[in-house]
């Protein structure tokens, strides 16, 4: 078995894992749970992108992975931002 076939199979497994993680986005219960699941999606997505980059032979896909990492950080920061004047710390 060549590694690219194995990589594709593992990417498929990760995709199914991500789809299972989507259940947590949908059922919640709290918004923080949804945010967390979205973060998990980002991390697994980066892994899938890395595997695809190796399988399809497109190194540029890693730049998309960098954007995914940025996106996770920005959305978590936007999510946890407190209203001004609510908490002085």
């Amino acid at each position: 078995m060549t590694p690219s076939t194995a990589f594709l199979a593992i990417a498929l497994v990760l995709l199914i894992t991500m789809a299972a993680g989507l259940v947590r986005v949908i059922i919640g219960p709290s918004p923080a749970d949804r945010m967390m699941a979205a973060q998990l999606l980002g991390t697994s997505g980066i892994a899938v992108l890395l595997l695809l980059a190796a399988t399809l032979g497109i190194p540029a896909l890693i730049d998309v992975g960098l954007i995914f990492a940025l996106l996770a950080a920005v959305s978590v920061a936007a999510f946890t931002r407190r209203r001004i004047g609510q908490d002085r710390s």
């Binding site: 995709l15 989507l22 986005v25 949908i26 918004p31 949804r34 945010m35 699941a37 979205a38 999606l41 980002g42 997505g45 899938v48 992108l49 695809l52 399809l56 497109i58 540029a60 896909l61 730049d63 998309v64 954007i67 995914f68 996106l71 959305s75």
Partner: peptide
């Protein structure tokens, strides 16, 4: 909104699979 973010990530994966990293 949360689902929309997840949807955007997923769509980006589809574009990556279609060999369109840009």
């Amino acid at each position: 909104v949360m689902l929309f973010i997840a949807f955007g990530l997923w769509l980006a994966l589809v574009w990556a699979r279609l060999r369109a990293p840009d």
